[in-house]
């Protein structure tokens, strides 16, 4: 009888437990980039605005750091989005949209460099725009110096290494995606990224070593 009671209670517990149903995933409130681009291709302008707001700042920073020239970056920025708009008819969602976007941006930058030979007359970018006043002045000074050193080291990097580093930092692309964007192999990309990071790290650590 006790056994029966135990078995019944076990059955009751089993029944009271939620059944092991594989619930359908909740509906994604934010559609993916590819979906948005396909919607825009079909005439949904709001989808493009969402897509644009999602990527515009990162792309702008990528171009700004890559060109080191604000006006050129703005020109290329417009050019890139213009090409994305024009190519919406032939857009195929075979790859990540970010890869597509940054590939276009990379090509536009290459075209720009070829046209202008060298992107000279760089306008120095403000590197101290996010100083936190609540920190100690020494720390603030040290961090400001580190930013300046990083900025100058970034400028002194070869274009390929800077491109790879920025694609990593701004676009958040993986090595394979960066390789696809730059048209190089994964190993080359990895090597360029390693060189870039090592140089930037050395630039940041420079005063520490000196002291």
């Amino acid at each position: 009888m006790a056994c029966d009671a135990q078995s019944l209670s076990a059955v009751g517990l089993a029944l009271s437990r939620p059944p092991g149903v594989a619930y359908a995933a909740p509906m994604d409130p934010e559609p993916g980039d590819r979906t948005l681009m396909l919607r825009y291709r079909d005439g949904d302008n709001a989808a493009f605005e969402t897509l644009y707001r999602r990527h515009n700042d990162a792309l702008y920073r990528y171009l700004l750091r890559l060109c080191q020239h604000r006006h050129s970056a703005e020109d290329i920025f417009q050019d890139v989005w213009g090409k994305i708009i024009n190519a919406r008819g032939s857009y195929r969602p075979t790859a990540k949209f970010a890869t597509f976007l940054y590939r276009v941006a990379h090509n536009c930058f290459i075209d720009h460099v070829r046209r202008n030979k060298r992107h000279a007359n760089s306008v120095p970018l403000d590197t101290d725009c996010h100083a936190d006043s609540s920190e100690q002045p020494e720390i603030l000074t040290e961090r400001a110096l580190a930013r300046r050193r990083l900025d100058s080291a970034l400028k002194s990097l070869p274009d390929e290494q800077r491109d790879v580093f920025l694609l990593r930092e701004e676009a958040g692309l993986s090595l394979e995606e960066i390789a696809a964007v730059t048209g190089s192999s994964r190993e080359t990309t990895k090597s360029r990224l390693r060189y870039a990071v090592n140089k930037l790290r050395a630039a940041i650590d420079e005063p520490t070593r000196a002291s």
Binding site: F48, E49, Y60, F77, W81, C129, L150, L154, I204
Partner: peptide, 23 residues
């Protein structure tokens, strides 16, 4: 450190121009 370099945003006039063009 790179993140602290600056959080530049695309200028609003560019945003408007591109969105108008897209529309």
């Amino acid at each position: 450190t790179y993140r602290e370099l600056g959080d530049e945003r695309a200028p609003e006039h560019l945003n408007q121009r591109i969105l108008q063009r897209a529309a």
